[in-house]
């Protein structure tokens, strides 16, 4: 992924097809991944047809989408395949923004009834739940850039997660997480990540 360069110019269909045929003949494995990626981009175009999309949004398998509000997806947002599809629900009048280059593993559930804002280059592990509404609560969730949320973590309404922070596997985040810190446990407790500010996450 890191070798890719972001270009706005795309080759003509005939050129792309010829390139694909050449790749099938020389390197079938690479051709398979490229074809899968291409199908994923087309699938995302169909699934997110009611949303504002950036370039090359990719859904590698089905995503349950129910959009009545305003959804904005940045460039190269990826939804990975797995045992459970991701779920994106945006209620009427609600806002859901996802920054460029964010990755979503299988089973991620995003439910916006007011506002969920996700920054750039974030990573979400499998079965993460981000719901901004509860039975008696309705508060916006803000996740800043370069955040990594690990497997099966739950983010409660009204939480802000600072830049570069990491939410541990299975954690339940009930309070704000400062930038460059590690949140682990149920309820989550934050500890600073030493050296993180000097060495920021370097994404493609």
């Amino acid at each position: 992924m890191s070798e890719q360069t972001i270009t706005s110019k795309r080759p003509a269909l005939s050129v792309a097809l010829r390139q694909l045929l050449h790749l099938i003949a020389t390197d079938p494995e690479a051709a398979r991944t490229r074809l899968k990626r291409g199908i994923g981009v087309l699938r995302a175009r169909w699934l997110f047809r009611n949303c504002e999309r950036g370039e090359l949004v990719n859904a590698l398998s089905h995503v349950c989408v129910d959009v009545r509000g305003r959804v904005k997806l940045g460039d190269r947002v990826q939804f990975w395949e797995g045992m459970i599809p991701q779920e994106i629900i945006c209620a009427e009048g609600a806002e859901l923004t996802i920054g460029a280059l964010s990755l979503f593993n299988y089973g991620v559930s995003l439910r916006a009834h007011r506002s969920i804002r996700i920054g750039e280059r974030c990573m979400f592990g499998s079965l993460v739940h981000i719901h901004d509404s509860g039975r008696n609560r309705l508060a916006p969730i803000v996740i800043e850039d370069d955040v990594w949320v690990a497997h099966a973590a739950v983010i409660e309404p009204g939480v802000t997660i600072g830049t570069g922070s990491v939410v541990g596997a299975g954690a339940v985040v009930t309070t704000d997480v400062p930038p460059w810190s590690l949140a682990v446990g149920n309820p989550a407790k934050c500890t600073p990540l030493t050296g993180a500010e000097r060495d920021p996450p370097n994404h493609p």
Partner: peptide
Amino acid sequence: SFSRLMDNHFHPLVGDRH
């Protein structure tokens, strides 16, 4: 059900996440 066994975190806490 839904238990998970993994011997690697796949991303470091600090530095290049890939």
